[in-house]
């Protein structure tokens, strides 16, 4: 019943404890700011270094950055819209569909997976 052991950070593996700062307030923020800084550096680098392209459009300044950002944003928004059309309840195809296998939370007494 490892899933249900009392939550004691001392029982975590060393490596797991090393990452615990992620959960602390500000942890996520730190990650985000790192990302912003990296992005800024990359924009700078785009003008500093020579880059060779096969297509004319690649010559456009920070083309890849713009492409990456806007296409992904568009993709995510698109998915949100599409979800309205595509979403169906879990037992849509069959009452025994794979999506319906009980999750650990749903099974109070989960069998031991180490068996």
């Amino acid at each position: 019943m490892d899933n249900r052991t009392p939550d004691n950070a001392d029982t975590y593996p060393a490596l797991g404890r090393a990452f615990l700062w992620l959960d602390r307030p500000g942890g996520a923020k730190a990650v985000r700011y790192t990302l912003f800084i990296l992005c800024a550096l990359l924009i700078v680098a785009d003008f500093v270094f020579y880059k060779k392209g096969y297509l004319p459009i690649e010559e456009f300044p920070i083309f890849y950055a713009l492409f990456g950002f806007f296409s992904c944003a568009a993709l995510l928004i698109c998915s949100v819209v599409m979800r309205v059309i595509l979403e169906r309840p879990r037992d849509y195809y069959a009452p025994t569909d794979g999506a319906l296998e009980p999750s650990p939370q749903e099974q109070a007494a989960k069998v031991d997976h180490h068996a």
Binding site: L35, I43, F49, Y64, A65, F67, G68, C72
Partner: peptide
């Protein structure tokens, strides 16, 4: 650089 741009800006989104 271009590859990192592509990926990190996706991550930004």
């Amino acid at each position: 650089i271009t590859q990192l741009q592509l990926l990190l800006f996706s991550a930004l989104a």
